[in-house]
Amino acid sequence: MKRISQREIANLLGVNVSTVSRALRGLEGVSQELRQKILSLAKEQGYRPNPFAVSLRYDTTRTIGIVVPDVSFNHYAQIVKRIEAEARKVGYMCIITDSDDKYENEKNCIDLLVNMHVEGIIICLAQETTDFSHIQHLRRIHMPVVLFDRDADIDISSVVINDVESAREVTCRLIDGGAKRIAFLGGPNRLKQTADRKHGYLEALRERGIPIRKELVKCDFLSFSSGFSNTTELLDMHDRPDAIVASHGLLTLSSMKAIEARGMNVPNDISVVGYMSDWISEVLTPRVSFVKQNQKEIAVKAFKLLHDQMDGDTCVQHVIVKARLELRDSTR
């Protein structure tokens, strides 16, 4: 059923729209008898004020925008849920958009949010994005903006985990367990997150005197199919790897499936460590050792940076949230 408007209430009672507006807002200038008629009719007809019209009138929407590569992916879903909880505490609503990991979609999502007069935007960059001018434009128009999970070498506040350090720790742990031929599965090299995690992996190999073999490094578009095919290629090698560092949840799952399809045993034939949620590790067989990312802290810090900007803070801050390695059954 169509909601009744102030104009329709005014027409039904034969009064001006401004009179109805004043009565509904409790302002003076309306007789008590007429005010009661207006309030009674509004209640009877289920009148509710249009929050967007009200917010535009006072130049504040009390909304923020969120852009994620895939809202169905558990990691992003958990962070978005936490951001919403933080926003709700201070009276803000969230408008969530999904870029599907595509550059053009990301730009469209941001344009949509700006046109909807959100007061700030929190973004996880699409893996296709290499041109950041649309992000930098937000600062030029004084739109508060924070990047999370995936950042870039640009002058925009961000919240990420200790990507280099965590990948280095994972690789060192595999070496300590006896691994000599450690493969790395990553997203596209243009992603700073991939570059940083690969840097940590390579740093550990150099420190421990393990030869770096380019054929053991597979960086490709982040997807289940690419992870599966790249793992299959690694397993086809004559001198195949004895361990895999999977730098994303999809790559962890796909590598495990590819290993299972070959009838190989984890960890006896090959060890696997991934970046993923703890509950996903627990439902896999064997349970996968993983880098635990503090999704709540990422969300809380990202919203705080955004809220501070909305309050006038112009400082660019890059926050690093410490992740930790959780050992389960997939490593020796």
Score class of each variant (00 low, 15 high):
residue 169 E to H: 05
residue 170 V to G: 03
residue 171 T to N: 10
residue 175 I to G: 04
residue 175 I to T: 09
residue 178 G to K: 09
residue 179 A to N: 02
residue 179 A to H: 11
residue 186 G to M: 12
residue 187 G to H: 15
residue 190 R to D: 12
residue 192 K to I: 03
residue 192 K to F: 05
residue 196 D to T: 01
residue 197 R to Q: 14
residue 199 H to K: 09
residue 202 L to R: 07
residue 202 L to M: 10
residue 204 A to F: 07
residue 205 L to N: 05
residue 205 L to V: 03
residue 206 R to W: 14
residue 209 G to C: 10
residue 210 I to R: 03
residue 210 I to A: 05
residue 213 R to V: 02
residue 214 K to E: 10
residue 215 E to Y: 13
residue 216 L to K: 03
residue 217 V to Y: 06
residue 220 D to H: 06
residue 220 D to S: 03
residue 223 S to C: 13
residue 223 S to N: 01
residue 225 S to R: 04
residue 225 S to F: 11
residue 227 G to V: 07
residue 228 F to M: 08
residue 230 N to I: 02
residue 233 E to R: 03
residue 233 E to M: 04
residue 233 E to H: 01
residue 234 L to K: 09
residue 236 D to L: 06
residue 239 D to Y: 03
residue 242 D to M: 02
residue 242 D to Q: 12
residue 246 A to C: 06
residue 249 G to Y: 06
residue 249 G to S: 11
residue 251 L to M: 12
residue 251 L to Q: 15
residue 253 L to Q: 09
residue 254 S to E: 13
residue 257 K to F: 13
residue 257 K to P: 00
residue 259 I to T: 00
residue 259 I to R: 01
residue 260 E to I: 09
residue 261 A to C: 03
residue 261 A to Q: 14
residue 264 M to N: 03
residue 266 V to I: 08
residue 267 P to L: 05
residue 268 N to S: 07
residue 269 D to S: 06
residue 269 D to P: 00
residue 274 G to M: 13
residue 275 Y to D: 10
residue 276 M to Y: 05
residue 277 S to A: 07
residue 277 S to M: 15
residue 280 I to M: 07
residue 280 I to G: 04
residue 281 S to E: 14
residue 288 V to E: 14
residue 290 F to P: 00
residue 293 Q to S: 12
residue 294 N to W: 11
residue 295 Q to N: 15
residue 297 E to G: 01
residue 297 E to N: 03
residue 297 E to C: 04
residue 299 A to S: 06
residue 302 A to V: 05
residue 302 A to R: 03
residue 303 F to P: 00
residue 306 L to C: 01
residue 309 Q to V: 08
